[in-house]
């Protein structure tokens, strides 16, 4: 085992309780501080894999192993739909949840929340209800909630979904300098090229290719074969 390895997946397979096989025979490693992108057509198992990696999927049949050679550490998960993420009735309580859970004083939490919201360009949104926010704002508030406790690993499920190009650019600027290990799924190839160190291509629950983004994206045949590029 490598000391720089944060996550190691060996022979991973998963079958949902209804019998649907979502993942099959996955083997890969994620280095400490690495930014790994999962790409693939709809229904290829990206979200399932992310949920499994963060230990959020229960029931069903799991095969293989997910090892954390560097210890479990803290992790955060950004759900594809921000409505599934936000559990408090104000942005401040939601973003500061992890810090309040860890026992920080509310005054200190408020200061950290204000800073986290500034980073995602939502300064002054503390007292707003999540219900009042637009989809993109909810997404950015959810991201602030993920980043605030400086977790060792962050799992992002389609972080650019619903964001306009400017917001996607801001998202890349926020995530790029982080020393954190990031595993994310995305259909936004611009974000993947600009952020990921390595890309894994999934289709029908199986791993078809892995490598640097430029290598994967230059193979038009591979992308076409898996429904990620059109003939034109």
């Amino acid at each position: 085992m490598n000391d720089d390895c944060q996550l190691e997946v060996a022979g991973l397979g998963y079958r949902y309780p209804n019998g649907h096989r979502a993942l099959e025979g996955l083997d890969f490693r994620v280095g400490r501080g690495e930014k790994l992108a999962l790409i693939g057509p709809n229904g290829s198992g990206k979200s399932t894999l992310l949920l499994l990696l963060d230990g959020l999927l229960h029931g069903g049949r799991l095969e293989g192993e997910i090892r954390r050679p560097g210890g479990t550490g803290t992790s955060a998960f950004l759900f594809q739909n921000p409505d599934d993420q936000m559990i408090a009735s104000t942005v401040e309580d939601d973003v500061g949840f992890a810090l309040l859970r860890d026992g920080l004083e509310p005054a200190a939490v408020k200061a950290r929340v204000a800073e986290a919201l500034r980073r995602v360009h939502l300064a002054g949104y503390e007292k707003r209800s999540p219900l009042e926010l637009s989809f993109g704002e909810k997404k950015r508030a959810s991201l602030a909630g993920c980043l605030i406790a400086s977790p060792a690993t962050i799992f992002l499920d389609e972080p650019a979904l619903g964001l306009d190009p400017r917001e996607t650019g801001q998202l890349r600027e926020i995530l790029q300098p982080l020393p954190t290990t990031i595993v994310f799924s995305s259909m936004d190839f611009g974000l993947v090229s600009g952020l990921a160190d390595r890309v894994i291509l999934l289709d029908r629950g199986r791993l078809f290719a892995a490598g640097p983004p430029e290598e994967i994206f230059s193979d038009r045949g591979l992308l076409r074969e898996h429904g990620l590029a059109t003939d034109g």
């Binding site: 993420q85 859970r101 408020k110």
Partner: peptide
């Protein structure tokens, strides 16, 4: 799932 993903440990908090 959201609560589990956010590290819910049996308590809810507020800054209020």
């Amino acid at each position: 799932t959201a609560l589990l993903g956010r590290g819910f440990s049996g308590r809810l908090y507020t800054c209020f």
